[in-house]
């Protein structure tokens, strides 16, 4: 199994940390992982994306031009990455802030109202975990228990009290992902 993922959005949306938690989850179940970030020098507010690869085999290139899954969180990233999804692949996006919805017919498209769900849950910072939940519902490549173990590894101990909230956010994301086509 090899899953090649691009997660793309604005800096500050938690794109990089979502990728990191996913990568850690892969390690927790003895897989090979790579995480390669790309962001503008301006960071917050600028575009940010991360390529995450989870595989049972040794990973070759950590940078790619075609992906099994694209998780897209703003319009710039939609413009840039919709066409980079491999035929038969998956595109998951948050429609909040998207003016031009994806149109490809040869891939599976899902919507996740990450920003809306996070706001309803009373904490916009868990937005990325809602989106992660949506992804894991579509592609259960890592087990939820390993995601929680990954969270524990990637969060400083003083934030461990937030793990139950993050777990709830993932669960809410799993419930709220909608197939579009």
């Amino acid at each position: 199994m090899t899953e090649e993922i691009i997660i793309a959005g604005f800096g500050g949306q938690g794109v990089l940390s979502m990728g990191k938690i996913l990568a850690y989850s892969g390690i927790m179940q003895d897989q090979e992982v790579s995480w390669f970030p790309a962001y503008g020098p301006e960071m917050r507010g600028g575009t940010a994306n991360v390529t995450v690869i989870i595989s049972d085999e040794r990973i070759s290139s950590p940078t790619l031009t075609a992906y099994d899954t694209a998780i897209i969180l703003n319009q710039q990233s939609m413009d840039k990455f919709e066409n980079s999804v491999k035929p038969g692949g998956v595109l998951i996006y948050d429609p909040n802030g998207i003016s031009k919805h994806p149109t490809r017919q040869d891939i599976k498209i899902y919507k996740i109202e990450g920003a809306k769900v996070a706001t309803e849950m009373g904490n916009t910072k868990i937005f990325n975990m809602v989106v992660l939940g949506g992804y894991l519902s579509v592609k259960p490549i890592v087990k939820l228990e390993n995601v929680i173990r990954g969270l524990k590894k990637s969060l400083h101990e003083r934030y461990h009290k937030l793990i139950p909230l993050n777990e709830d956010a993932i669960t809410m994301g799993m419930k709220n992902v909608v197939e579009v086509n």
């Binding site: 990191k20 990568a23 992982v33 790579s34 995480w35 970030p37």
Partner: peptide, 9 residues
């Protein structure tokens, strides 16, 4: 910068 900035196990 690629090997330096990327994360792996």
């Amino acid at each position: 910068g690629l090997i330096g900035q990327m994360m792996e196990k």
